[in-house]
């Protein structure tokens, strides 16, 4: 019984990480339809921001909390720069976007390598996160994971509120549901796109701060997350916030169960296989948007 519980708990841990990295992509790829291969590099930028903030402040606790908003703004602004300089010009040319953002990701990786050096750097976890693990019904839950779980749920709720009740959220939803109609109603879709991209990239930056608690920070950090992020968004249903949440935790628990019963190195491959089969039967993902738009 404890083993099953441990598996589920570690699945929730993996799930919250998946959710955190996929959330921003859910906006830019899911809502706007931009295939951004450089999304992983925004995660990397968030991670290096956490490193720089900690180097400046010294105290691990306050610098972790401060780096969350700083990374959000830094990655968000870089996202806007990318949107305005490149992506804006390739509207509705997804294949070109794919290649251009792939190139951007290589450029950003090399920049990071030149700025911070090829060897990886580290962030020290604050004392209140590195203490003894919590014990929940007999299963050990490391404090870092509780923090990441809370962070991802916090981001989901924040995003839900922004999309649901603010004027910006209404504009974003209108643009996603029918771009032309939104435009004719007087919404500046260009400005909306910029803001959506700001939030999406900013969330990647927040995810970057989160992953510094788990591993080393290196220029290629983003590449290990980008594929999983796309996986969650596609499996959850394009443009569906709740789909991403369900998919992230579902895939996390699935990976954890396979990891426990067969082995960690097979788990990832099998999870992909499951998703591929699933998409054969339900190409629109877990949750599909009902729309009359012909786009």
């Amino acid at each position: 019984m404890t083993l099953v519980l441990t598996t589920i708990v570690s699945g929730l841990c993996v799930g919250s990480l998946l959710l955190l990295i996929a959330l921003g992509l859910g906006l830019t790829f899911g809502q706007m339809g931009v295939i951004n291969n450089a999304h992983g590099e925004f995660i990397m930028i968030g991670a290096y921001t956490a490193y720089l903030v900690q180097r400046a402040l010294g105290d691990p606790g306050s610098s972790l909390l401060l780096s969350l908003p700083v990374a959000f703004v830094t990655a968000g602004l870089l996202g806007v720069v990318l949107e305005v300089t490149l992506l804006r010009r390739m509207h509705r040319r997804p294949l070109d976007t794919l290649l251009v953002t792939f190139g951007v990701s290589l450029v950003l990786q090399q920049l990071a390598r030149d700025l911070f050096g090829a060897p990886s750097v580290n962030v020290t976890a604050p004392a209140w996160l590195s203490g003894d693990p919590f014990v929940i019904a007999g299963a050990d839950v490391p404090r870092t994971w509780v923090f990441l779980f809370a962070l991802s749920i916090g981001c989901v709720l924040g995003l839900r509120i922004v999309l649901g009740v603010t004027p910006l959220g209404r504009r974003i939803r209108a643009t996603v549901q029918n771009r032309d109609l939104a435009e004719t109603s007087g919404i500046s879709t260009a400005a909306t796109d910029r803001m959506t991209f700001f939030i999406g990239s900013g969330l990647a930056g927040v995810a970057g701060v989160g992953v510094t608690l788990l591993g080393a920070i290196s220029p290629t950090l983003g590449t290990s997350y980008i594929v999983n992020a796309f996986l969650v968004v596609v499996a959850g249903g394009i443009g569906q916030l709740w789909g991403s949440v369900v998919a992230a935790f579902g895939l996390g628990i699935l990976e954890s169960f396979i990891g426990f019963s067969i082995g960690q190195s097979t788990a990832q491959a099998l999870v992909f296989l499951v998703v591929v089969v699933f998409l054969q039967f339900r190409p629109q993902g877990l949750i599909a948007l009902r729309t009359r738009s012909i786009a």
């Binding site: 404890t2 083993l3 441990t6 598996t7 708990v9 570690s10 841990c13 993996v14 990480l17 050990d140 994971w145 992953v211 788990l214 591993g215 080393a216 290629t220 290990s224 990976e255 954890s256 990891g259 426990f260 082995g263 960690q264 190195s265 788990a267 990832q268």
Partner: peptide, 20 residues
């Protein structure tokens, strides 16, 4: 006996197994 893909950063499952 557990293997992680090269470059993997996800060790929750492996460490849980180690604990068990």
């Amino acid at each position: 006996e557990e293997y992680a893909p090269l470059g993997s950063v996800d060790f929750t499952t492996i460490v849980s197994k180690l604990k068990a």
